[in-house]
Design a protein around this nucleic acid. Structure first.
Lengths: 230, 230
DNA sequence: CAGTATAAAATTTGATCATATTCTATCTCG
DNA sequence: CGAGATAGAATATGATCAAATTTTATACTG
C-alpha cells in the first residue's frame, strides 16, 4: 500500500476495482483525476521530482504518466523541459466548443439509439446526485458527477474512438473549468441534463443532440465569458 | 550521432531542423513517422527491448515514447503488458470518417479564410509532387506527401487544438492505410486536392470544406471497403 | 552612496542508463 | 492434460550526468 492508494480514495467517487495495475497506470489515473476535477491550477508547474516525492513512486512511472498527459493535451511541455498545466486562450476555448459540439452531439445521438430504460434510470440518479452537489455548493463533487454523467451517457454510443476524443477535450478544460466554478459558484451552472434525459426517454436522438449542444455551450461558454472579462 | 539520426534521414522528406531534442522526443518522432507512413504493420507487436536495441537508446526514452503513442491511439496496450499496432474494425473506420469530416472540413474552412496566395502556390507544388509519386507507384512517398499536404493546409487554420485532434486520427489509420495502398496500388487513389486548391483560390470556404469531405471519404472509405471484402 | 546590471556559483530539476525485481507465457515432465 | 520450471520481457528504482533557474556576490553607473 503506497501513497497512491490513499490519494485515489480521497476522491470519494467509487472507482472501478483496480486490481493490481502497474504504477505508471496508477500515477496516470491519479493525475488525470486531479486535472479533470481541478485539483491542479492552470499555469501551475508540474515537476517530476515533486511527484516522485508526493506519490512515493520512482521517476520512471511518473515520467511515463506525464508523457501520456502531455499527449492528451492535459499538460504542456514548455520547450525548456518544464511541464505545466495549460492556460487557455479565448481561441482555445472556441475550438474546444466547436470540437465538443461536433463529437459529443454525435455521441448523444448514438447513445439515444442504443440506451435501455434501466440505464436512463441510472443517468437520472446521477443527475439527482449532481443537483444535490449544486445545492450544497460542492464544486468538486459537481465536477465529478458531471463528468460521470456524460461518461455514462456516452458509454452507450458504442464509439470508443469518439469517446476517446471527447475525453481528451475534457482533460484540456478541466483545470480552467474548476477556476470558473470556484469564482462563480455552482448556482450559476444550470445544466441541460433534464432535457437530455427527456430526449432519451422519447428515443429522440436529434433532441438529445440539441440538448447536449446547449449543455456544452452553457458550460464552456461561461469559461469564455470569464476569460474575456477577467 | 546515434542510430536515431540515421533512421530519421531514411525518411527522405525534409524535416524541420531538430537541433538537440531529448532522446525521448526523437524516439517519439521516429516511431510516429513509422506509424504514420506504414512502416509498421497492423497487429505487429512492439517491444521495448526491441526498440532499445534497434534505436540504440536506453529503455526510459523508449518507454516514454511508447506511452505517448498509446495515448495518441497509435499503439494499443493489450492488458498483458504487450503493446502492438492496432487492427481497425469496421466500426473504428466509420467513427474515424465521422470525426475526420467533422474536424478537418472545419480546418479547411478556416484555412480558406486565412491562406495567402503564395501559400496556395506551395500547396499546389506539394500536390504536383504527390501526383509524381502516384505515377511512380511510390506508396511511401504518396503517404508522406499526402500528409504534408493536409498538414500544410491546416496550418493556416490557426486552430492548434483541432489540428491536434486531426493528427491523432491520422496516427490511428496510418498503418491500415498503408496496407490498403500496398494492395490496391496508388493508381486507385484519386484525391480531391485539385478541388481543394481551386476552392482556396476562390476564397470559397464552403467549397473547400466539401472537397475536403470528399477527399476523406475516398481515402478512408477505401479502407472500409478493403476491410469488409477481405 | 544607492541602485542597477552583470557574472559566476549553487541549487533545483530533467534526462538517461544500468540493475534488480516482477510478471507472463511457454515448455517440459509426470 | 496439468503443475511446476524456465526464459524472456516489462516494471521500477537509484545513481549519474546535463541543463536550466535562482541566488549571490561583484562591478559599474548616475
Amino acid at each position: 500500500m503506497n501513497h497512491l492508494d490513499l490519494i485515489k480514495n480521497k476522491a470519494g467517487i467509487p472507482l472501478d476495482d483496480e486490481e493490481k495495475r502497474p504504477a505508471h497506470e496508477q500515477v496516470y489515473r491519479t493525475l488525470k483525476s486531479q486535472i479533470l476535477f481541478g485539483d491542479l491550477v492552470p499555469g501551475q508547474p508540474v515537476t517530476i521530482q515533486g511527484l516522485t516525492d508526493s506519490l512515493g513512486v520512482g521517476m520512471t512511472p511518473v515520467r511515463e504518466a506525464i508523457r501520456r498527459l502531455i499527449s492528451d493535451g492535459a499538460l504542456i511541455f514548455q520547450g525548456n523541459r518544464r511541464v505545466s498545466v495549460p492556460l487557455l486562450s479565448a481561441s482555445d476555448i472556441e475550438q474546444m466548443i466547436f470540437a465538443r459540439i461536433s463529437i459529443e452531439t454525435e455521441l448523444s445521438r448514438r447513445s439515444a439509439k442504443n440506451i435501455a430504460a434501466t440505464d436512463i434510470d441510472r443517468l437520472e440518479d446521477l443527475d439527482q446526485r449532481l443537483d444535490d452537489m449544486i445545492a450544497d455548493g460542492d464544486v468538486g463533487g459537481y465536477l465529478r458527477l458531471n463528468h460521470a454523467f456524460h461518461q455514462a451517457l456516452y458509454s452507450h454510443a458504442e464509439a470508443p474512438i469518439l469517446v476517446d476524443l471527447a475525453e481528451r477535450l475534457w482533460l484540456r478544460f478541466g483545470p480552467s473549468l474548476r477556476i470558473v466554478c470556484g469564482r462563480f459558484g455552482t448556482q450559476s451552472l444550470p445544466d441541460r441534463h433534464k432535457d437530455i434525459i427527456a430526449a432519451l426517454r422519447d428515443q429522440n436522438a436529434e433532441k438529445a443532440a440539441i440538448a447536449t449542444a446547449q449543455d456544452i455551450e452553457q458550460g464552456i461558454g461561461m469559461m469564455g465569458d470569464a476569460l474575456t472579462t477577467a
